[in-house]
Design a protein around this nucleic acid. Structure first.
Lengths: 152, 152
DNA sequence: GGGGTATGGTCTCAAATGTAGACCGACTGC
DNA sequence: GCAGTCGGTCTACATTTGAGACCATACCCC
């Protein structure tokens, strides 16, 4: 049974491979897979995933990267987020120190949300990710068509 | 009530700011916020978020970055994922061409999952993100303590 | 033949999570 | 007074997730 994987045609350049290599070594530690009681609650990977892995958080962060927004402007901009989730996501982002919340005691009180320094810093790797996403989008859609074609 | 935003003490270096700047310009287009019918289904940002934003997908990708895994090995490694979600996530990753699935007709059939070239490429920005996460983890936890302290 | 192991899943049901939208109090403009 | 804005909260309903039973196959041991 000669088994060959689709055998990576090596798309990555040397730098990329090195990044991955270093990362792979680190990730072993980050996951702590052999710890008797894997410290799930304190694992940075899990932790950031809980934030980034939230459908809305990233979208909010990206929106705020353009300029500070008020609550309802934010909702309009993101588009299909419900007030409930927007409130909830903003609270978590604020709690994590990625977003700041400032209330102006105007007649109908207005609230402005903005990125903190930490939030801006977070956007750097996020930007890289989305940048890759934009580039890989065609490949992904092609893969989907292929997959769907041979197994509808 | 003089409240001031935590007024970004400028943590980002010039390069980072530039990346963000370029990204911010792009993101406007990516979101297509003013399109009459924002093309949600075709938006690369949304699209990648649907995958990356899946709690398990990233964890699986990272695990596979170490070496190919079989189904049950993958489950053991990730830890607290149910078979159901593991199956589901793997199917999507396979469909998107990030992961390959190979069946060996052994006595109890075994199935091996591995990263494709596209999957490896995806890990480069992901690695950067998790790398940042590891570094920022302390700041985030500090922010949380602060937040929880002043509003329990 | 029984009992145990292991394989990669699928299926079902309950619990958790997300969504839509009504509602709120304070205020503005008409 | 009537309607609208603002930043939410609350409730009822829909979708998603998780835990675990179950399956067919085949090995091992006795």
């Amino acid at each position: 049974m000669t088994r060959e994987h689709p055998s990576n045609p090596v798309v990555l350049d040397a730098t990329a491979r090195q990044v991955l290599q270093v990362f792979s070594e680190k990730s072993t530690a980050l996951f702590a897979p052999e710890a008797p009681v894997p410290d799930m609650d304190n694992c940075p990977v899990r932790d950031v995933l809980a934030r980034v892995g939230d459908k809305w958080s990233l979208l909010i962060l990206v929106t705020l990267s353009q300029k500070p927004h008020r609550f309802s402007a934010l909702q309009r901009q993101v588009g299909d987020i419900s007030k409930r989730m927007l409130t909830q996501s903003l609270r978590m982002l604020e709690r994590d120190g990625l977003v700041s919340r400032q209330v102006f005691p105007t007649k109908p009180p207005s609230v402005e949300y903005a990125l903190t320094a930490l939030g801006e810093a977070a956007l750097v790797p996020v930007a890289a990710l989305l940048d890759w996403a934009a580039g890989a989008h065609d490949d992904i859609r092609a893969a989907r068509r292929r997959y769907d074609a041979e197994a509808g």
